[in-house]
Computed example of a mutant assay.
Amino acid sequence: MQEGGVSGFLHAFVAEVFAMVRAHVAALGGNAVVSYIMKQCVFMENPNKNQAQCLINVSGDAVVFVRESELEVVTSQPSTANCQSSCPGGEVTT
């Protein structure tokens, strides 16, 4: 295990999960996550071998968020602005 013990390992692991979520949202073309939920977190430790494992199941909805002040610029371009949840891909713009 790295320096900081179990709590340091868990903190670093959750930070890495958040980084992966941000990267996945960006890869999908989104810029925000809504309805984020951590459904499961399993932590196993073997202090005799100085080892730990963690499994986290997270989910959420990737969206394209547009500020109201930027909406005039976006609506002048062909896009999915003001699209509701029935849009292809499930993107919601507000």
Score class of each variant (00 low, 15 high):
K49H: 11
T94G: 12
V14L: 15
G29W: 14
N46F: 12
G90T: 08
L10F: 09
P47W: 11
H11D: 15
G90H: 13
L71K: 08
G90Q: 09
M1Q: 08
M44Y: 03
L71C: 04
G5V: 09
L71S: 07
A19W: 01
M20G: 08
N82K: 11
G90W: 06
V42G: 02
P47G: 09
M20E: 15
A19K: 12
E45M: 04
V42L: 15
A23I: 01
F18W: 06
N31K: 08
P47S: 14
E45Y: 02
G90D: 10
V34C: 02
K49D: 14
A62Q: 01
E3F: 03
A23R: 13
L10D: 02
E68H: 03
F43N: 05
A12H: 04
V42A: 13
E16Y: 04
F13P: 00
C83W: 02
N57K: 10
C54T: 12
V64R: 04
A52S: 11
V73S: 12
Q84P: 01
G4D: 11
P78G: 05
I56E: 02
G4P: 04
S79I: 03
V64Q: 05
A26L: 14
F9M: 12
M38D: 12
D61G: 00
T75V: 15
C87R: 07
T75C: 08
A52M: 13
C54W: 01
G8V: 07
G29Q: 10
N82G: 09
M1F: 10
V34W: 00
S85L: 10
T75A: 06
G30N: 02
N57R: 09
N46I: 08
A32E: 11
T75E: 15
T93V: 14
V42Y: 05
V73L: 14
L71Q: 05
V92I: 15
A52T: 06
F65E: 05
G5R: 06
S35V: 03
S85V: 12
C41M: 14
Q53M: 06
K39W: 04
Q2G: 09
V74N: 00
R22S: 09
T94N: 09
